[in-house]
Simulated scan of single mutants.
Amino acid sequence: MSKKVTINVIAETARVSKTTVSRFLNGKFDNMSEETKERIAQTIENLDYHPSRQAQALKAKNSLLIGVSVADISNTYTSRLLKGISDYFQNTIYQVLIMDGDNSIAREYSNLEKMVSEKIDGIILQPLVHQPEHYQLLIDEKIPVVQVDRYTEPFTWSAVVSDNFQKSLEVAELIIDKKYEEIIILANHINGVSSRMNRYNGLKSGVENTNISIKLIEIDDIENWQNLLLSMIDSKTKKALYALNGQVLWEIIRLLKKHNVSIPDDVGVIGYDDDMFADMISPEITAVSQNPQEIGRIAADNLMQIMDNHTTVPKTTRIPSTVQIRESL
């Protein structure tokens, strides 16, 4: 019979103390070198060690569960966000409970109710509702919460987001430089979604002292938004389309190709979040490239720090994005 793998065995094999192994499993990496972390992680993998969550939970007197609520799990941005979160917690004592809101406020609320009933130790939330009191009615103030991608207002919990406003300012500079006369912004509904509001407001601020006009199409609210967009493209002004997320960007590309609208000759195109595919078509699409995996990792780390240090002061962390200039403008 093979010898049972314990923390003592891991410590002996990795040539570290039992305390160091315990700190590693609890995600407490302060003052721990990268070399030590890698050696412990490799030892755990080599020995195929799987800690008993039930035993650890009894010892720690908590659930050792982290709840993650996302707006739409089918979105490729979300899959990369979840990758960052799950990778962070992989070698800790915590297990991650992922629940999909499916862009439904009712479903999101039901999911959060289930999380709270499981006595989760912390929540990473991609909120569908902009008002914090909607969540505060359900989530006890003792439960640590970190928001990702977007946040509620007034600001209540820490958040890790892209630098949305700043990047739209850069998009505005690019549009001015390319001498566009009009920009059509396309998005799902904007009001109440901080990421989209910041992208819209950043662009608006960037062109406010120019003659460039802005028009907004919220595709969720217009039944025949495709026909509306095509009719607007037919006008003589030099215009660009700005899609505020990856899903909308690809709907636009599909529509333009179907109707033989030439990019960028007939209309320029730029998207926010290219889903890593924007350079794989012709012409290559200019897009803002986000780093959702890093957003997820930092959010997980922030949540761990809040749980460890019992900090309550909310902060915003903005992860830099990059404007990838290609052929579509």
Score class of each variant (00 low, 15 high):
176 I>S: 11
262 S>P: 00
214 I>Q: 02
245 N>G: 09
214 I>T: 01
266 D>A: 07
183 I>R: 01
249 L>A: 11
245 N>K: 10
273 D>C: 04
206 G>H: 09
229 L>S: 04
242 Y>F: 15
234 D>G: 07
271 G>R: 14
247 Q>N: 11
259 H>M: 02
194 S>P: 04
175 I>N: 08
176 I>Y: 14
209 N>M: 09
211 N>P: 10
191 N>W: 02
275 D>C: 11
211 N>C: 13
252 I>Y: 03
271 G>K: 12
267 V>T: 06
278 A>R: 02
224 N>T: 04
270 I>N: 11
186 L>P: 04
237 T>R: 13
232 M>A: 05
208 E>W: 00
200 Y>W: 09
183 I>H: 00
175 I>K: 08
260 N>W: 02
271 G>S: 10
207 V>H: 00
259 H>I: 00
244 L>K: 03
202 G>T: 03
185 I>R: 01
236 K>L: 07
262 S>H: 13
220 D>S: 12
201 N>K: 15
208 E>R: 10
201 N>Y: 14
185 I>E: 03
271 G>Q: 09
276 M>K: 12
192 G>F: 08
255 L>P: 13
210 T>Y: 13
262 S>C: 06
264 P>F: 13
200 Y>K: 14
242 Y>N: 01
228 L>G: 03
253 I>N: 14
211 N>M: 13
179 K>H: 15
233 I>A: 03
269 V>K: 03
241 L>V: 14
275 D>F: 15
223 E>G: 01
192 G>Q: 07
199 R>D: 11
189 H>W: 06
210 T>V: 12
193 V>D: 05
232 M>K: 07
200 Y>R: 14
177 D>Y: 08
201 N>D: 11
218 E>I: 03
238 K>E: 08
227 N>S: 09
235 S>T: 11
274 D>F: 12
212 I>E: 08
186 L>F: 01
200 Y>P: 02
229 L>Y: 00
226 Q>M: 02
177 D>C: 05
250 W>C: 06
215 K>T: 15
270 I>D: 13
249 L>M: 15
195 S>H: 10
278 A>G: 05
181 E>F: 09
234 D>W: 00
206 G>A: 10
237 T>Y: 04
258 K>M: 08
227 N>P: 00
194 S>I: 04
248 V>A: 08
175 I>F: 15
179 K>M: 07
